[in-house]
Design a protein around this nucleic acid. Structure first.
Lengths: 136, 136
DNA sequence: TAATATCCTACTAACCCTATAGGGTATTAG
DNA sequence: CTAATACCCTATAGGGTTAGTAGGATATTA
C-alpha cells in the first residue's frame, strides 16, 4: 500500500510542477488546492526539502518551489525519498539491500526471483516517468 | 513491503509444488525445511486452505497438499489471498476498488495515472507466473 | 484408546502511520 | 523597529497492522 505521505507528496509536487513560474508557493495554498491537512503537508514538504527536491523561502511571499525542472525529476527519486525502497523485499532492493536470515541461497529462493521481476518492472515505470509527465 | 505472511506462504506453496506426489505434507515438515515458526505457518496454511488453494487431511499421515497442479495456480491468486490487493492504491484496484475522498476527478489525478501503470506491470508478472515456474 | 495432526479463536507485544501540538526562526512590509 | 507571515523542528498521541504465541477442540489412524 502506498502511504498517504507519498500520495500527498506526489500531489503537492505535481501542483508545483504545474505552476508557470518557479516562485515560492505557500503550504496553505497547496493544502487548499489538494485537500491536504496543513500540518501534515508541512512535514512532507520538509522532508522533500531536506532531500534536495524542493527549495524554500521563509517570511512573507515565501513558500516551497522546485529546485529542478519537472522533466529532470524522475519518480524513482520521489518514491525513494517519500516511500522508501521500491523493492517489496529488502533482498531485492538496489539501494537498501538486506539479506534474509532464513534463505541460504537467494538464487534458489522463489520469492526472491519473483520479486526481482516486480522490482524491475516498477523501476522501469518510475524511471521513465518524470514530474512533467504527471502534469498533463 | 511484502508481509512475512505472504513470503512464508509462497515458500510453503513452492515447497509443496516441488513434491513429486500430492500426498499430504505436515506443517512440521514444511516448517523445518523453510525455517518458519510452526505456529505462524499453521495460520498461514489455514487461510490458504480456506481460500481453496490447499486441501488438508487430519490425523496421522495427514497434512496439507495442493488442490490443483502447480501450473494451474497463478500468482495473482496467491497474492490476493495472502497479501490482499495487488494495486498500491484502492482507486486503481480491480478487485478492491474504492474511491478517494480527496480527488474529484480520477482521470486528472497524477497518483492515479502513475499507479495504474505500476498495477498493470505487476499484474502482468503475477498472471504469467505460476507455482510451477517458481519450482525451478 | 492413544498418538498424530489439523482446526480455531483469542491475545499480545512491537511497530508504523497519520495527524497534531507548540514553539522557534527567518524574512518582509510598513 | 515591529508586526505579520510562513517556514523549521521535535515530540507525541492514537489508531491500526503485523508477527508471533497460547491453548484447547476436533478428526483420523493404527
Amino acid at each position: 500500500m502506498l502511504s498517504k505521505k507519498t500520495k500527498y507528496g506526489i500531489k503537492a509536487l505535481t501542483f508545483l510542477a504545474r505552476q508557470n513560474s518557479r516562485k515560492p508557493v505557500s503550504i496553505a495554498t497547496i493544502s487548499k488546492s489538494e485537500t491536504i491537512s496543513v500540518k501534515f503537508l508541512e512535514t512532507i514538504l520538509l522532508t522533500l526539502k531536506k532531500n534536495g527536491i524542493l527549495g524554500s523561502k521563509k517570511g512573507m511571499g515565501g513558500g516551497y518551489y522546485l529546485l529542478k525542472e519537472p522533466k529532470d525529476v524522475p519518480m524513482t527519486t520521489v518514491m525513494r525519498v517519500l516511500e522508501g525502497p521500491i523493492a517489496m523485499v529488502p533482498c531485492v532492493s538496489l539501494n537498501y539491500y538486506e539479506k534474509c536470515n532464513d534463505c541460504p541461497d537467494e538464487d534458489k529462493c522463489a520469492v526472491h526471483r519473483l520479486m526481482i521481476q516486480i522490482r524491475d518492472n516498477s523501476l522501469k515505470v518510475f524511471r521513465n516517468t518524470t514530474l512533467e509527465d504527471l502534469t498533463n
